[in-house]
C-alpha cells in the first residue's frame, strides 16, 4: 500500500526535495484561548525534526491537527503534495502518517505482539479468505512468518506483511521476547515503546512522536535516540516532541520552538540552545545539567 521506496525520498533533505509535511498558517482556538496561532513548519524526509516548547504551548494540539483528530480553524496541512487538511484520520494513516500519543493509547487487552500486528495488517481487507484460513490453523499472530532474516528497519514499510513480523519489529525497538505480554500490564516505559513499534508497523513515511522518551530510563532513552536516527536514515521523516533536551539536542537536525501557540524560533540545535528567547521561555538560562528534561 505505502511503499517507501519512491525515488528521491531517501536523498538529502536539500532545498529542492518535497517536504514530507508542510503545515501552513494553522490556527486553533479552544473557546476564548488560542492554542495555535499561524503556525507554519516543514518536516523534510530523512530527518529528525524537533518540536519543543513549554507546557501548554500547543505541541500536542498541532499533532492532533496533523493526524486529523483536531480540525484547525484556519490553515492547511500538506502531506507531500496532498492536501490532507480535511481528511479523516484513517485516510491520512493510509497515506503513510503514523503517530504515538502523549498519554498511552495502547490496545490494552491485546498482547504487545497483537498490538503491532494490528498495525502490520492495517491495509489488509479482513474479508480476504487467506487470512481467515490462517486464523483457523495458527495459534496467534505473534509467530513469525517466513521471510528475509535481516529484519532491518528499512524493510518496514516496503512489503510489510511479507517480511516484518511483530516479533521482529518489537526486537527492533528493543522489546525482544515481550510479544506475549498483555499490554495493560506492562510498565509505562515499555508500553510507550510498544506504541512506537505499532506506529512503525504501518510503514509510515512520516512519524509523529509525542514524548516517546518520558517513562524511559537513561539507557533506554539513548537507545531510542539511536533508533530514531536510524529510521531517519532510511528516508523517513520524524517529528519529535520531547522535553528531554539531551535527546532532542543530540539527534535533531532542526528544531522548531513553540510558545503560547506561536513559533518563536527555528534552527539547528546549537542555534536554539543559544537563542535568548528560547532560553527565557523554555530552557532556562542557568547551566542546566545534561539530564534535565
Amino acid at each position: 500500500m505505502s511503499p517507501v521506496d519512491e525515488p528521491g525520498l531517501a536523498s538529502e533533505p536539500s532545498g529542492g526535495a518535497l517536504p514530507a509535511l508542510t503545515v501552513s498558517q494553522v490556527s486553533v482556538r479552544f473557546g476564548g484561548v488560542s492554542a495555535l496561532t499561524n503556525v507554519s513548519l516543514v518536516v523534510p524526509p530523512g530527518t529528525v525534526t524537533g518540536l519543543i516548547g513549554p507546557n501548554g504551548a500547543g505541541k500536542t494540539t498541532l499533532f492532533n491537527v496533523i493526524s486529523g483528530l483536531q480540525e484547525p480553524d484556519r490553515g492547511a496541512v500538506h502531506f507531500f503534495d496532498t492536501d490532507v487538511t480535511m481528511m479523516k484520520p484513517y485516510r491520512r494513516a493510509r497515506l503513510g502518517l503514523a503517530r504515538t500519543f502523549q498519554l498511552l493509547e495502547l490496545f490494552g487487552t491485546l498482547t504487545a505482539g497483537e498490538n503491532v500486528q494490528v498495525g502490520l495488517e492495517s491495509t489488509v481487507k479482513w474479508w480476504q479468505w487467506s487470512h481467515l484460513r490462517k486464523a483457523l490453523w495458527r495459534n496467534s499472530g505473534s509467530e513469525s512468518a517466513p521471510g528475509d532474516p535481516t529484519a532491518a528497519v528499512a524493510l518496514v514499510g516496503s512489503d510489510a506483511l511479507a517480511v516484518a513480523t511483530p516479533d521482529r519489529l518489537l526486537a527492533e525497538v528493543g522489546l525482544e521476547g515481550m510479544a506475549n505480554e498483555q499490554a495493560n500490564a506492562m510498565p509505562t516505559g515499555l508500553a510507550r515503546t510498544v506504541e512506537l513499534a505499532r506506529g512503525l508497523a504501518i510503514g509510515p513515511k512520516l512519524l509523529l512522536l509525542d514524548e516517546p522518551g518520558s517513562g524511559l530510563d537513561e539507557a533506554e532513552s539513548q537507545a531510542l535516540g539511536t533508533l530514531l536516527v536510524r529510521l531517519a536514515s532510511t528516508g523517513m521523516a520524524v517529528l519529535l516532541v520531547e522535553h528531554d533536551m539531551e535527546l532532542v539536542m543530540g539527534i535533531c537536525d532542526r528544531i522548531h520552538v513553540l510558545d503560547f501557540g506561536h513559533v518563536i524560533a527555528t534552527g539547528s540545535p546549537e542555534a536554539i540552545r543559544s537563542d535568548p528567547a528560547v532560553q527565557t521561555a523554555y530552557l532556562g538560562t542557568g547551566s542546566p545539567p545534561g539530564g534535565t528534561r
Binding site: 493526524s67 486529523g68 483528530l69 479523516k88 484520520p89 484513517y90 485516510r91 491520512r92 494513516a93 493510509r94 503514523a98 503517530r99 500519543f101 493509547e105 495502547l106 490496545f107 490494552g108 487487552t109 491485546l110 497483537e114 498490538n115 500486528q117 494490528v118 498495525g119 495488517e121 492495517s122 491495509t123 489488509v124 479482513w126 487470512h131 481467515l132 490462517k134 486464523a135 483457523l136 495458527r138 496467534s140 499472530g141 506504541e195 505499532r198 506506529g199 504501518i202
Partner: peptide, 23 residues
Amino acid sequence: RSLFGRRLVAMSDSPAAYATLGL
C-alpha cells in the same frame, strides 16, 4: 483469531489509536 478479531478488540480498547493506524 483473525485480523478482524484483533481489530474488534483494538477498536474497543482505543478508538483514537485505531483510526490513526489507518483503520
